[in-house]
Every structure is written in structure tokens, then in C-alpha cells.
């Protein structure tokens, strides 16, 4: 079967599985993202906060503390060592959570900027915008390094002054100021300048969670990869498409049918969009063949060259 034209994207899955099933993970993600935001915003109105604070640090049901581990690292880099216990416990809890379910689950299920960048990508496809600046996806690791170096050099959380993630989340809950301009910047950058520009190449938080998710338990599998008819729809919707070939086309190289790269955000779009149900969620150890995570990222880049 030939590559699906862009205006036909998702038609097959909808026809075979029904609209709802063909969007179930997308809907679930939006529901989770908005619910988290909503619970934070509800507190001051309802008088009792299920979630209090914002993504940087929060309190769940007035008891369980959570703190973003990257902020925790910035505190240490900035030379603040007298950190109170709730931030220590909170950072450990968040870290442990993403260690298990996949670091970049933060990106696709929690981060509010994801809605912005997904919208930009959707619009880019709709409008047929082609502009593609080549940025290495590894730039994000440089950015991550920069965030920590800046904290070390300036002794403060300098990146937090402009971090679009906290800016958007905090802005919606506590008031924006001109913070929306930064978000608009991310949106326009993704729309006109680089495809998946921010989340896929630059965001240091993404990079951090990427590293956290190196050994995550929950992974996407491609158990029915022999059914793949090369429609390329999953490549079109996947925000980190370099992770796909190893699992999908790795049979000839004896690679297991599992996406081991921690670039994968566990968003489940590939599961949704595939008309022949190649993909499903599973655990890391479910892969029958031996895991070889070293091999799986570079291929796509090579194929493209």
C-alpha cells in the first residue's frame, strides 16, 4: 500500500476502528493534561485544593509533596543546599514516578506546552507549511547542560525566567503578564521554522525527562509489525519519529519489536493512528527478543541521509 496522502491521514484507522478508538490516547492525554491544570485552578475557587501550587512544586491532597526534579538540580547547582524536606521528598517522588512509567510521559501527558506544540504541528500539516530548519535533536542536551551551568554561574534559577513550560502552567493558574509572548514564540517557531522544533529539539526539560526515562518500564510495542503496510501514518503523527524504524522495521536486524528509545513520549498516537493495529502499550520486559537499546536511534537518521 502506498504512503497515505496527508489529507487522508487517519481515515483508515477511523474507518476500521471508529473515530473514538482511533483517537483514544489523544483524548485521554488531553483529558489528563486539562484535568491537572483544572485541579490546580479549582483550589482557590472550591476552597479545598486537590492539587495546590503548580508543576514546579505542588501539594497533592494537602499531604503529598511534589517538586520538579530539574528544579531540584538547579537549586543544587545554584548553591542552595539547605533544601527543606518536602522538596527533597517531592523531587524523589516525581523522579521515581517517571523512572517507572517513562520520563517523557511528562511531555505528552502532563506538560501544557505539549498542547501548544501539537496544535502548531496540526496546523502546519493543515496549511501545508514546509519550512524545515535543520536542528539536531541533540541540541536539547546542550540546552539541559546550559540550564545547569547557568544556575551554577549565576547562583539563581536563571532558566526559570523564560522557561515556557512553567511560564504557561503558572500563567494559567496565577496570571500571565506578558508570559503569553514566550508561548506564542514557541508556537510560531514550531509552526513556521522547525517541525516539532521546541519539544523535539530544544526543550531542556524534555531532555531531562528523556534521560530519566532511559530504563522506563512502560514502552510501546510493535508486536504485529509484519502487518505494517508502509502507509507511513505513524511517522507523520509521531513527535519523535526517529524512534519508530528500529521497532517497526528491525525484524531483519533481529531487533525486538519494542520502542526502547527514551525519546518516545508514550503518547500513543502511533497506537491510535495505525489502521492495522501494529502497536500496543506493554512493559519493557515483554519483548521476547533480547533488548538492544544501543542500536535503535541512529537508523532513521541514516535512512534519511
Amino acid at each position: 500500500m502506498p504512503v497515505t496522502p496527508l489529507n487522508q491521514l487517519g481515515r483508515e484507522a477511523i474507518a476500521k476502528k471508529g473515530w473514538f478508538t482511533a483517537h483514544k490516547f489523544l483524548l485521554a492525554r488531553r483529558a489528563v493534561q486539562l484535568a491537572i491544570l483544572g485541579l490546580f485552578m479549582l483550589g482557590p475557587i472550591a476552597g479545598f485544593a486537590i492539587l495546590k501550587g503548580n508543576l514546579s512544586s505542588s501539594l497533592f491532597l494537602e499531604t503529598i509533596p511534589m517538586t520538579d526534579p530539574l528544579l531540584f538540580l538547579q537549586m543544587l547547582a545554584g548553591g542552595f543546599f539547605g533544601i527543606a524536606s518536602s522538596a527533597i521528598i517531592g523531587a524523589a517522588l516525581v523522579f521515581g514516578f517517571y523512572l517507572l512509567i517513562g520520563g517523557r510521559v511528562f511531555c505528552s501527558w502532563v506538560c501544557p506546552v505539549n498542547i501548544v506544540s501539537d496544535t502548531a504541528h496540526w496546523l502546519r500539516r493543515r496549511l501545508g507549511i514546509k519550512g524545515k530548519t535543520k536542528i539536531s535533536p541533540n541540541t536539547r542536551y546542550w540546552m539541559l547542560g546550559l540550564v545547569l551551568v547557568l544556575a551554577f554561574v549565576t547562583g539563581t534559577m536563571t532558566y526559570e525566567l523564560v522557561n515556557p513550560v512553567s511560564m504557561l502552567h503558572r500563567g494559567l493558574i496565577f496570571g500571565f503578564g506578558f508570559g503569553w509572548a514566550v508561548i506564542l514564540g514557541v508556537f510560531l517557531f514550531d509552526l513556521f521554522i522547525a517541525e516539532h522544533g521546541w519539544c523535539g529539539h530544544l526543550c531542556p526539560m524534555g531532555a531531562f525527562y528523556n534521560l530519566v526515562g532511559k530504563t522506563a518500564l512502560v514502552r510501546v510495542h510493535a508486536p504485529r509489525r509484519d502487518l505494517c503496510d508502509d502507509c507511513m501514518e505513524c511517522y507523520e503523527v509521531c513527535p519523535e519519529k526517529q524512534v519508530l524504524p528500529a521497532a517497526l522495521k528491525g525484524a531483519k536486524d533481529n531487533k525486538p519489536p519494542i520502542i526502547l528509545s527514551s525519546d518516545c513520549t508514550n503518547c500513543g498516537r502511533c497506537v491510535d493512528i495505525c489502521g492495522v493495529n501494529v502497536f500496543e502499550f506493554g512493559l519493557r520486559f515483554d519483548a521476547k527478543m533480547e533488548a538492544c537499546s544501543k542500536l535503535d536511534t541512529g537508523d532513521y537518521v541514516k535512512n534519511q541521509a
Binding site: 501550587g53 503548580n54 542552595f80 496565577f174
Partner: peptide
């Protein structure tokens, strides 16, 4: 500035 995560728990 090195210690505050800007979470707003104090505000709340």
C-alpha cells in the same frame, strides 16, 4: 532566587 521554585504554595 536559588531556592524558590516559584510554585505559589505560599501564595495559596
Amino acid at each position: 532566587l536559588a531556592a524558590c521554585t516559584r510554585c505559589g504554595l505560599c501564595v495559596r
